[in-house]
Nucleic acid binder design. Structure first.
Length: 810
RNA sequence: GCCGGAGUGGCGGAAUGGUAGACGCGCACGACUCAAAAUCGUGUAUCGAAAGGUGUGGAGGUUCGAGUCCUCUCUCCGGCACCA
């Protein structure tokens, strides 16, 4: 047989698959459907590095296996093509972002195609294509219709370099996620999406889906659900009343003062009639500024100023002074907090400004208790702390009494229970060019008017300059012939909204478009959605857990509520892959100069070797360093399989050879289950073992070799097709049926057991499979090894674990 | 600080509470070769001449038996961080 030449066979089979539409999802409703999905890339100018294909290959293995199992598989790919790099490139070169985007997409596609991934390219989407973003705009109008999109003046995170407003999610350590510039705060009118209205369901419904635990916890933490009590109390000398929220209310009788956020909307009303009102407001605004400039790691010094107001404590601690404190947040809870000796910040604050403290919860340790009493230390353990007040709870552990305290406060009309979230509404507008225009027209008479569906898409106009304006407005604002339009409602003059959507918009629903990508009458037909959704298995990066993944769940839930989609959750299963790092353990990036291009690997070793290596290199979910040297292992393995075909023949299996079926069946079982649990590395290892064992045989049965090829096909599809065809098959292995194993053929006649003395393994021995405990015990006790180790002693106890071990306790 | 995850040979890593180190890389030796590469074979945790002992970050514990379960602790990675 000829030498293994990956170049030749890979090109040949890739062409064959495309020509015969082997990987296209069909409309065959009789086959069960399977929708497997990977995150579509942003087509950057840098192209792919070897890390990108890892998830693609992983889900390709799953998708190819599903096809062989008889599923109608949808495994699509596309491009998330709006975004800053193309726009920044346009600013530098004057070349329209759509041109460079198109070029980059071509480059990406070529790279991806060379890997033999079984994507259905007939369903490719591009979020910057007007035929696509028409529907992104249309979906936005649904949010608007249902009052989930609104405009609000708010302080936003502003990147002075990119001149763009950023969502909280895009700010890392106080810096812009993209360029690393320190973020400023700015007051701006922004479009918002009311994701907080879905906070509760986004949290709760995590119980309904099969997401990996780390994804669930991360989303839960981000949503930040906490139950607590809201206390209401009147402000003395005013007709105001304030509400405070506390999640750690166990020591509620300890509250001795109140703090309010420096940017709280109630503040100026509260200060009405106070002599030095202006000074206090001034101090508050200084506090705010200092807080914004503060770095992440800086020591957080508490700071505040007295408002001059008092509130009457609902739980009977008399009049509590109201202070403005720099650590109080206006947009969490009620923005006002009752404070006590049982919170680190409150404690520090009280010490600093000499405020009265009254501890009511103490540790068991008497020495420590004394120090808490004397206000030497702050005690905050709301689980183990022992309450001293109120009398009803005296001597009780705070943690145990939590629910009873809620009931008590409700019964005595002191407070009401409430659930609060850390999640904030989503800043949805960007003042940039390369994004979906927000389809709204401002009319002096009618106010804000939605662009009618028939006028969609609102196309991006041509501009000369892509730079954002210094006033923070989008470059679209400079194109008067585009901005000035007529009001769709009254026909009078109107101005277009010049903000565009963030690039999370297109990716919030792209998986729906794949089900019906060429539909120009609907975002996707209901029939297609009913058939294909939810996505059965979605794999993507951990870095998207609190962004894309949460956003798209939110969109989907809303679509479900208004009857657009059939399921309340978009993804049935979510897993995450680990990054591939450079050989030295650093992140791969162009700026570090350590990028390994997959094409250079395909060139030298072949796509099958690259695929196999990426699946074999380590646990799929774990980050791992690239190792050029280790590639040779998978390549050698493929060549051994290639040579193995020379030994294949067809004859009856003799009785003495029947044991060979055990190994075949075990391999089928191992590989089949490992693929389902992301154990690609151990699946490959099992395949290597099987091939090694066949290699040692004089003769290889056709069934054995074909089983090996079928199990290999999802991992190394090109060489599998080639050898499959060489073996005389006319239909491609891609459409062959996945092998099944026989539960009765997973074990041999004899089983090897371990002999342990006092738990230490001393020897092994064989018994026939299915031997009973009694037999095993007798065989074990009669072994020469046993006699040697017992040395005449009589075992106190004999533990027999059938099929595993015998342990003699002396 | 809080919430996750992980610490196993020279390296990547295997192990439903039951023979630790599968599989692969590397390395050593051997075969083939004039030679080298490639390939194939054998070996490869550690101490010990051997018998045997010791070994899964560290200290305890549960168990006939612990890499695996529990408690404490150290280190690394990821996420969050004035969230009351």
């Amino acid at each position: 047989m000829r030498e293994y030449d990956p170049k030749e066979i890979e090109a040949k089979w890739q062409e064959y698959w495309v020509k015969n539409k082997i990987h296209e999802a069909t409309d065959d409703v009789h086959k069960p459907k399977y929708y497997s999905l990977v995150e579509f890339p942003y087509p950057s100018g840098e192209g792919l590095h070897v890390g990108h294909p890892r998830p693609y290959i992983g889900m390709d293995v799953v998708s190819r296996k599903r096809r062989m199992e008889g599923y109608n598989v949808l495994y699509p790919m596309g491009f998330d093509a709006f975004g800053l790099p193309a726009e920044n490139y346009a600013i530098k070169t004057g070349i329209h972002p759509s041109i460079i985007t198109k070029e980059n997409i071509q480059k990406f596609k070529k790279q991806i195609e060379s890997l033999g991934l079984s994507f259905d390219w007939s369903r490719e989407v591009n979020t910057s294509d007007p035929a696509y973003y028409k529907w992104t705009q249309w979906l936005f109008l649904k949010f608007l219709e249902h009052d989930l999109a609104y405009k609000a003046k708010m302080t936003i995170n502003w990147c002075p370099k990119d001149k763009i407003g950023l969502a909280n999610e895009e700010v890392i350590d106080g810096k812009c996620e993209r360029c690393g510039t320190v973020v400023e705060k700015r007051e701006k009118e922004q479009w918002m999406l009311a994701i907080t209205k879905y906070a509760d369901r986004l949290d709760k419904d995590l119980d309904l889906v099969d997401f990996s635990e780390r994804v669930k916890t991360q989303q839960r933490n981000w949503i930040g659900r906490s139950t607590g009590l809201v206390f209401t109390s009147p402000v003395k000398d005013t007709n105001l009343s304030i509400e405070t929220f506390s999640a750690h209310f166990e020591a509620f009788c300890a509250d001795t003062f109140v703090v309010i956020a420096p940017d709280h909307p109630l503040l100026s009303k509260l200060l009405e009639g106070i002599q030095n009102k202006e000074d206090i407001l001034e101090a508050a605004s200084k506090m705010l500024q200092a807080r914004m400039l503060q770095g992440h790691d800086e020591v957080k010094e508490v700071e505040g100023i007295f408002t001059g107001r008092y509130t009457v404590d609902p739980v009977g601690n008399g009049e509590l002074p109201i202070w403005i404190a720099n650590y109080a947040l206006a947009d969490y809870g009620t923005g006002i907090v009752k404070c006590s000796a049982h919170d680190e910040r409150d404690f520090a604050f009280a010490k600093k400004y000499d405020l009265y403290l009254k501890p009511v919860m103490f540790p068991e340790d008497p020495g420590l208790k004394e120090r808490v009493k004397n206000l030497e230390v702050c005690y905050t353990d709301m689980k183990k702390g022992i309450l001293s007040f109120p009398k009803e709870f005296e001597g009780r552990k705070a943690g145990d009494a939590r629910q009873e305290i809620i009931d008590y406060c409700v019964a005595h009309n002191l407070a009401r229970p409430e659930i609060k979230f850390k999640l904030r509404d989503w800043v949805f507008s960007r003042q940039r060019y390369w994004g979906e225009p927000i389809p709204v027209i401002h009319c002096e008479k009618c106010g804000m008017v939605a662009v009618p569906e028939s006028d969609l898409p609102v196309l991006l106009p041509e501009v000369e300059k892509y730079e954002p304006t210094d006033t923070g407005e989008s470059p679209l604002a400079n194109i008067s012939e585009w901005v000035n339009t007529t009001c769709p409602k009254c026909g009078g003059p109107g101005k277009r909204e010049t903000d565009t959507m963030p690039n999370w918009a297109g990716s919030s629903w792209y998986f729906l478009r794949y089900t019906d990508p060429h539909n120009d009458a609907e975002f996707a037909s209901r029939a297609a959605l009913d058939h294909w959704t939810p996505v059965d298995w979605y794999n993507g990066g951990m870095e998207h857990t609190t962004l894309h993944l949460l956003y798209s769940r939110f969109w989907h839930k809303f679509f479900f509520d208004i009857g657009l989609v059939p399921t309340s959750e978009p993804y049935a299963r979510r897993t995450s892959h680990g990054f591939i790092l450079a050989e030295n353990g650093e992140k791969m990036s162009k700026s570090r100069g350590n990028v390994v291009n997959p094409n250079s690997i395909v060139e030298r070793y072949g796509a099958d070797t690259l695929r196999l290596y990426e699946m074999f290199m380590g646990p799929f979910e774990q980050a791992i360093s690239w190792s050029e040297g280790a590639l040779i292992g998978p390549r050698r393995f493929i060549e051994r399989v290639w040579k193995l075909s020379d030994k294949v023949g067809d004859r009856e299996m003799t009785a003495s050879e029947a044991d060979r079926e055990i190994e075949r069946n075990r391999t089928i079982k191992k590989v089949s289950t490992d693929i389902e649990t992301l154990g690609f590395n151990t699946a490959v290892s099992a395949l290597m073992m099987y091939a090694n064992s066949l290699e040692k045989k004089e003769f290889v049965f056709k069934t054995e070799f074909e089983t090996l090829l079928k199990l290999l096909a999802p991992f190394v599809p090109h060489v599998s097709e080639e050898l499959w065809a060489k073996a005389g098959n006319t239909d491609p292995i891609s459409l062959a049926s996945w092998p099944e194993f026989d539960e009765d053929k997973l074990h041999t006649e004899l089983t090897t057991l371990a002999l342990q003395i006092n738990g230490k393994t001393r020897s092994t021995f064989e018994v026939s499979f299915g031997a009973l405990e009694e037999e095993i015990r007798e065989i074990a006790l009669a072994l020469p090894e046993t006699k040697k180790w017992l040395n005449g002693a009589i075992p106190k106890k004999v533990i027999v674990v059938v099929g595993k071990i015998v342990n003699l306790v002396v």
